[in-house]
Amino acid sequence: MEFTIRVWRQAGPGSKGELKVYRANNVSADSSFIEMMTELNIHLLEMGDEPVAFEADCLEGICGTCSMMIDGVAHGPEKGTTTCQLFMRSFKDGATITVEPFRAGAFPVLKDLVVDRSAFDRIVQQGGFISVNTGNAPDGNAVLVPKDQAETSMDAAECIGCGACVASCKNGSAMLFVSAKAAHFANLPQGQAERYRRTILMVEQMDKEGFGACTNQYECEAVCPKEISVNFIGQLNRDYMVGKLKGAGGK
């Protein structure tokens, strides 16, 4: 297969970037998007050009490292798929494909397609955990967790922290990520003690990082590679207000 690839090139965090046009010839339909980009890089190297910087690691859709805006859609056209699990057979031969980084004020571009998503880590550091030290745990079966609760918690916990929700949101909002993090714990008995405090502290950090507010367009859900439901955003909104009314969230 052959493609025209328009890629965002940006030398560094402060520099001005632009789209550059390259040809990708001889691409196997069985190549993943990452493999196609790797081949393109080898070609660029041969031409004496600097390869495109992009991130990808596990290549099986679970580590959340890969992050490309492909033809205006986070992780490209296939539903429930990360960039690394997107295969070239999903594109028409001869197509022109535009590749941009995940964009948000809170995700500054470091180089080309590489962005800094450490804002997510800082949100989790504020409350995305259960405070229990090693050695304190009762027996694993001491607290029974109804199966449906465990399943709901797992639905939320599937989040891979890739940032596609932020990238696709017209408002650059991180609500799907934050709500998934909160709902993972809020739906388990173990997570109840810190439920409201956790929610409030994470939301406050989310605001501090400069993410936008949710206007319930649900675009995040459509591009989420793990198809995390926006139902969790409703739960986050509720827990936030309940927590505020209870006066939770103080340090």
Binding site: T134, G140, N141, K147, S153, M154, H184
Partner: peptide, 22 residues
């Protein structure tokens, strides 16, 4: 055995039976 206990306490959503056990 302690690993499982600790991970449950940390909120790892292990698969459960209908009775709520692991």
């Amino acid at each position: 055995t302690s690993i499982i206990d600790h991970c449950v306490a940390l909120g790892v959503p292990f698969a459960r039976e209908y009775g709520g056990t692991l």
